[in-house]
């Protein structure tokens, strides 16, 4: 239901009394309301939905789950050299 995309905050400003910011999404820059992430710092990633920052992305948690998944790859059935795009390997 809810398209929310990660972006990196690089500017904070006030507009009509609201805390706003400019967020870089892979080079595309968009405005977002920061009222719901008052502690956000420039350089942090947040997820944007309907022009609002919903949550600061927790970098430690992200790294943690990627580490767990990396272990899965290392012990997994598929290795980096396998041809993954082929239907035969399904």
């Amino acid at each position: 239901m809810c398209l929310a995309i990660p972006g990196k905050l690089f500017e904070i400003f006030d507009e009509n009394g609201l805390k706003m910011g400019t967020v870089d999404v892979n080079g595309a820059k968009t405005r977002a309301c920061l009222e719901y992430v008052p502690d956000i710092q420039i350089g942090q990633y947040t997820i944007i939905h309907a022009g609002f920052a919903l949550k600061i992305i927790d970098e430690e948690e992200a790294a943690e789950s990627l580490k767990l998944w990396q272990e899965l790859i290392e012990s997994g059935a598929f290795q980096p050299d396998d041809d993954l795009s082929s239907a035969d390997s399904l």
Binding site: I5, P6, K8, V25, N26, Y45, I57, A62, L66, W69, L72, I73, G76, A77, F78, Q79, P80, D82, L84, S85, S89
Partner: peptide, 16 residues
Amino acid sequence: MKYIDEYRDPLLARNL
């Protein structure tokens, strides 16, 4: 794209 591409990794997907 940070926080997107890591989660579209085909190798990880196939192992899952």
